[in-house]
């Protein structure tokens, strides 16, 4: 065992000299940017669609009942499907229907589908954190729904929405590792590539781990800072089961 360890150490040193060269750095940096780009596009669009979804979910009236039900069904379903399964579902659907989308696009679509559901819930909770009496008061003064949202609700809700939405985004940087399974050339795929070239797993995947950490940790810190800055009053009795809520809500070590 001890002998073996020394051998590995030798191999490691030998490979390192070959591995840490400029070309590989460029390759890895590109892969890292792909990871970041698809997370930004996916979660950014997810935020916009999330707002739309919440708007429909909160539109009153019998006429909108089917729309509300569709939206609720959407949100509750896609928060309960593994990202990996959704990725393959989207990929095979796109291919089955003969659409010519790049793998990157397929990954982005999958992220949007999931993040819309999750961020939609985050936004909804943010709006709910603004007390109903604020709506009533605006109603009594003849504000329209949009005017109330614009002048009263959103200025209060964004502080509650932003920290968890950002935390979700940071969490998804890591989840995009799964897109390597449909062949997107991002950070994890780059690790696999080097591992397949014969580089030690400790070296290839170890480097990739460090790069993920470099992407994720500063943003995690930024998220904590944001949370402290906005010192949002979070609902105390958040006892409901919000699928995955805990995963992106952890903060402050």
């Amino acid at each position: 065992m001890y002998e073996g360890f020394l051998d590995i150490f030798d191999v490691f040193l030998e490979q390192s000299a070959e591995f840490y060269v400029w070309d590989n750095a460029v390759y890895l940096f590109r892969a890292m940017m792909t990871t970041l780009t698809m997370t930004i596009i996916g979660c950014g669009l997810g935020f916009i669609f999330g707002m739309i979804v919440v708007y429909f979910r909160r539109t009153p009236g019998l006429m909108f009942w089917p729309v509300r039900m569709t939206v609720i069904f959407y949100v509750e379903t896609f928060r309960r499907v593994p990202f990996l399964v959704l990725l393959f579902l989207v990929m095979f659907t796109v291919k089955g229907f003969g659409l010519d989308f790049s793998l990157f696009t397929i990954a982005c679509i999958s992220i949007v589908i999931i993040s819309t559901a999750f961020i939609g819930e985050i936004i909804r909770a943010g709006l709910d954190s603004v007390h109903q009496t604020q709506w009533d008061t605006a109603d009594a003064m003849n504000f329209s729904r949009l005017q109330t949202l614009r002048h009263v609700i959103l200025p209060q809700a964004w502080k509650v929405v932003l920290p968890p939405a950002f935390a979700f985004f940071v969490m998804f940087i890591k989840d995009t590792a799964l897109t390597s399974q449909v062949g997107v050339l991002e950070l994890t795929q780059a690790g696999k590539y080097y591992n397949n070239l014969g580089y030690s797993a400790i070296l290839s995947f170890g480097t990739v781990l460090v790069l993920y950490f470099i992407l994720s940790y500063p943003m995690t810190r930024l998220g904590w800072w944001m949370e402290a800055r906005l010192h949002t009053r979070r609902r105390d009795e958040r006892a409901e089961f919000e699928v995955g809520a805990t995963a992106y809500e952890l903060r402050g070590t």
Partner: peptide
């Protein structure tokens, strides 16, 4: 701060 998939690999 690292993906579960990569730690698994």
């Amino acid at each position: 701060n690292t993906p579960g998939l990569v730690t698994a690999f």
